[in-house]
Simulated scan of single mutants.
Amino acid sequence: MTYIVGLTGGIGSGKSAASAWFEQQEILVVDADIVAREVVEVGQPALIEIQKHFGDWVLDEQGCLNRSALRDYIFKHPEARQQLEAITHPVIRNSIIQQLNQASSPYAILASPLLLETDQHLLCQRNLLIDVPVELQLVRASQRDDQSREQIKRIIAVQMPRLEKQKRAHDIVDNSGTLEDLYQQLQPLHKHYLQLATSI
C-alpha cells in the first residue's frame, strides 16, 4: 500500500510550487485540479451529464466546458454547486484512486485545494497545508490569474476558513516568504514522509 500525503492550500498559497518541488524529488503527485479538468474533457461521461443537467449553454462553440459561464452561474445559484459536485466528485475520486494506486515512488502526494472540504482527505494518511495570510493570497492570485480581487475573495469565501484548515492539518508550511524559504521547509518534511512510508 502506498503512503499518501494530502497537500492543500487556498488560492494563491503556493500549493503548485510545493507540488512541483515534490515532483523534482521524484515523488508522484496526483493533482486533483488536473484530474477535474480531465474528467470533463470532450466526450467524457461527466461532461455529457453536466450538459444534460444544466443545458447546452455550459458548452462553448468547440463543445468544451465553458468554465467561466458555469462559474458565474454557480456564484449566482449556490444550489447548483452541489448538483455539479454530485456529478463530478465521484468520477474525480475514482480517477485519483486509480492514479495513486499506480505510484512507484516511496510515497505519493494528492494535491487538492478542496482536500479538507471533500472526502479526499480520507484517501491520505497525513495532510500538509501550505499556508499564507488571506491578504497575501489576494495579492498573489490577482497577479497570477486573470481575475479581480473581488472574484478571488468569493473563491476564498467558499473554501474552508484558514484557521479550520490549520486545525485539521498534520503539517503546516508558512509560505509567506520566498520560494527558497518554501523549499527549506519542505526538505525535512520530505525526509519525514520517506521514514513514515517505510514504516507502514
Rank of each mutant, 00 (worst) to 15 (best):
T2P: 05
I4T: 07
V5P: 00
T8L: 05
I11V: 11
S13A: 10
G14S: 03
K15T: 03
A17P: 05
A17Q: 09
A18Y: 11
S19A: 13
S19V: 11
A20P: 00
Q25H: 04
A32E: 04
D33Q: 06
V40A: 06
V42D: 00
V42Y: 00
G43T: 01
Q44F: 01
P45Q: 04
L47W: 00
L47A: 02
I48S: 09
I50D: 02
D56I: 00
L59W: 00
D60M: 03
D60L: 02
E61T: 06
Q62P: 02
Q62S: 09
G63A: 03
N66Q: 07
N66L: 07
N66A: 11
S68A: 15
L70N: 01
D72Y: 09
F75A: 07
F75N: 07
P78D: 07
R81I: 14
E85Q: 10
I87W: 00
T88E: 04
T88Y: 06
H89V: 03
H89C: 09
I92R: 14
I92N: 12
I92Y: 13
I92T: 08
R93V: 02
S95M: 09
I96M: 13
I96S: 07
Q99S: 09
N101V: 10
Q102P: 00
Q102K: 13
S104Q: 08
S104W: 01
S105I: 01
P106D: 05
L110R: 02
S112D: 12
S112P: 09
S112A: 12
S112N: 03
L115T: 01
Q120C: 07
H121L: 08
L122I: 04
L123I: 04
Q125Y: 07
R126W: 08
R126V: 09
I130C: 01
V132S: 07
E135M: 11
L136W: 01
Q137R: 14
A141V: 06
Q147M: 15
S148E: 10
R149T: 15
R149A: 15
Q151T: 15
Q151Y: 09
R154N: 13
I156Y: 11
A157M: 12
A157E: 13
P161I: 10
L163P: 10
E164C: 12
I172M: 12
I172S: 04
V173G: 01
D181E: 10
L182M: 12
Q185E: 08
L186C: 07
L186T: 08
Q187I: 12
P188K: 08
K191H: 14
H192W: 14
T198M: 13
T198P: 10
